[in-house]
Simulated scan of single mutants.
Amino acid sequence: MKYSKIIGTGSYLPDRVVTNQELQTRIETTDEWIVSRTGIEARHVAADDELTSDLALQAGRRAMESAGVTADDIDLIVVATTTPDMVFPSTACLLQAKLGVKKGAAFDVQAVCTGFIYALATADKFIASGAHKCALVVGAEVFSRLLDWNDRRTCVLFGDGAGAVVIKASDEPGIYSSHLHSDGSHGHILRVAGGIAEGKVRGNPFLEMDGAAVFKLAVRVLDECAREALTHNNVEASQLDWYIPHQANLRIINSIANKLGLPPERVVTTVARHGNTSAASVPLALDTAVRDGRIKDGQLVMLQGVGGGMTWGSVLLRW
């Protein structure tokens, strides 16, 4: 049986930084209120001429450079995004063209903030089946364009960015297992209900969220899904070297870590400076920890996401 292994990571954040201090001059909020409830201090916002595929391109190039591969090596591109450049072609196909990749498949995955977990699990299965040999998996978002910047309940939470990994076929396990879930009956608690029909936007084109309901569900399902992955692999939480959850809210992250008995020094958090970058949040955090030297060869890492749908999932891997 073939396995897949992450051999390179990359990320990209737009230049513009929007701090809590800037937001409190525009809407009725305060830095203290935002930090105490979310842990977020700032977020990056894409320039007017930056598209999701542009962010993905920068992160993808850095991941490929880190992995030591070229466009000729890539035979699969999976992009997780909720904010595609256009209805179609897919952002993955647009990225494929920008990278100069000439072979294989390219497609998008839409699972909102769980998107990267879904995309990584999908690419892993393609690699393990032998159908593909080297995949670029990207989470990229310009989520700021889905926000009503007058809604203080939601606009303070999100930011833009991209993260990417290159995975390659391996004889030794890199990704041990993935565990994906969804429950569409909770779709109303986190959604953008608008759509395009007959040349017009129908419905609300801005993010709607029941924050309390999302918080409660996220804490429950992430705990359950983490334990599912651990049990499946006969691993104890204490054996995890690193836990990298979706970067939405520091209180959610701390709640899960406490439930699993993980000390703060083994939890990677970037939410303070990035905000919630949806599908980009997990690969952004992963790349941060790889590049600053925290994650080392042979270590056991769990990735987790939870997002609209509602969707959630875990990936357990050996670095």
Score class of each variant (00 low, 15 high):
A80M: 12
H246V: 02
A279M: 00
T25R: 00
V165Y: 02
G211A: 07
S238K: 15
L207E: 06
Y118D: 06
L57A: 13
H44L: 08
A218M: 06
K103M: 02
D148G: 11
K125G: 05
V109L: 13
R16N: 07
K296N: 04
L120T: 12
V235T: 14
N234G: 13
E236T: 02
K133P: 01
N254Q: 15
V17K: 12
D241W: 04
R61K: 15
R220M: 10
H232L: 05
I253L: 15
A92S: 11
G174F: 00
R152M: 02
G159V: 01
E41A: 13
G199T: 01
C93M: 11
V290G: 04
M86Y: 00
T114I: 05
K133Y: 07
L317S: 11
R62G: 02
L222R: 05
N249A: 02
A140E: 11
N249Q: 03
R145Q: 10
V35S: 06
E22S: 00
G203H: 12
T29W: 06
L99D: 02
R26E: 11
T231R: 13
G8R: 10
G163Q: 03
E50M: 09
V166Q: 06
Q58A: 15
G39C: 05
S314M: 10
C155K: 00
G161N: 05
D49R: 09
E265Q: 14
L207K: 12
S53H: 03
A128I: 04
S11C: 09
R251N: 03
A131P: 00
S177Y: 00
V301N: 08
F158L: 07
R152I: 03
L217V: 08
K133A: 07
F215H: 14
M310A: 14
V166N: 01
V166A: 08
